[in-house]
Simulated scan of single mutants.
Amino acid sequence: MAKKIGTGTYLLEHAPSAAAYAAIVGQMEGEGPLGACFDYVEQDSYFGKDSWEQAESELQRRTVGTALQKAELTAQDIDLILAGDLINQCTGTTYGLRGMGIPLLGLYGACSTMAEGLALGSILMDSGIARHIVAATSSHFSTAERQFRFPLSYGGQRTPTAQWTCTASGAVVLAPCQNAPYLRAVTIGRIVDYGITDANNMGAAMAPAAADTILRFLADTGASPKEFDAIVTGDLGLIGSKLLCEILQKEGVDIRKQHRDCGAMMFDPEQQDTHAGGSGCGCSASVLCGYFLPRIRTGELKNILFAATGALMSPTASQQGESIPGISHLIHISADKKGGN
């Protein structure tokens, strides 16, 4: 049974496994530095469908299917799926998974959705109420741009602080302790709002929330950043990553040697015109599933913190002049079921 300590950290007694995982991305993501890490790179941005929204649903469906295949399980073996996306009413998830017949808890944590799904799924697994749970999410450049910014046909100029919403999806099959990677602890994020109103500066809006959650985990567990091979944030991008390190340094915590950001890793800023880096639910999900989890399984990495970040904005609130609240959920993932902090 998960044990709560401190301000919102839960130690997982049975440390469920990430038994299988999959990541599928679009063409631009496949052309980036991590292209070889993903299970599949789709060249057709429509994924063979008639609209961007249908494309994202197909993307998430394929990714979940690939993870199940790698786990040698069928949809009937899954007790519960925790999934969501960026589109209104989680359209990508609802229409992508509707044919699978798996009990669904739909989530909206913006770009923190993968960490939210893993956090809830691992706590549920640790309680013993399920044997197999899937955590999944997705994003698509064109669906996100249409909903949160400008229609693509508008041709608007993107500011230097803007990030590129990734066409990507990640899925993890959680199972009772089998082999590494193990999920050892989770810290549930709090809403943090520093008054940022620029929808093209997501890194600045989310960095304070990432700092809050990382500080709480370290305080709750008594751990030091030096104990981790990597402290991974979701998609702060180049600007938000710098801001995160500055905030933590002011609190006496230096993570500069350990910090990696999925949004900064996804694209090559010199060769790809993505400005401040990648973003979107699928950004951190695909980098986690394609890059980090395989390296934990092989033992190349021993302990990481995965702190995906989300901007809890809506077009309606933004149009009313509201600021952008941020949130970050954190998972401690390890190659060792008992070792580490």
Rank of each mutant, 00 (worst) to 15 (best):
A22P: 02
P16Y: 06
G326Q: 06
T316V: 13
R295K: 15
G203V: 02
R260S: 13
L215P: 03
G280E: 00
K250G: 08
C262S: 14
T159Y: 01
S112K: 09
T213F: 02
Q157M: 12
G48D: 08
I255G: 02
G240P: 10
L82A: 11
G339N: 11
G278F: 01
T137H: 01
R146M: 11
I231M: 09
A317P: 00
K302T: 15
S122Y: 06
A171F: 02
L183P: 06
P103Q: 10
H259K: 03
P325C: 07
A119H: 06
Q27V: 01
L107M: 09
L174E: 01
S328T: 00
C245F: 08
P294G: 11
A135C: 14
R184G: 02
G195D: 08
V253G: 01
G65E: 14
S139K: 05
L288F: 14
K337C: 11
Q258Y: 05
C111D: 07
Y10G: 06
A204I: 01
G8T: 08
P16L: 05
E145V: 06
Y21T: 03
A55W: 04
R149Y: 15
R131C: 13
A55C: 09
S153N: 10
A136C: 10
K337I: 07
A204L: 13
G99E: 14
P208H: 02
I133C: 07
A18E: 03
Q319K: 12
I239S: 12
M28V: 11
E246M: 13
C177V: 13
Y46R: 12
D336V: 00
I191E: 14
L301E: 09
I191V: 13
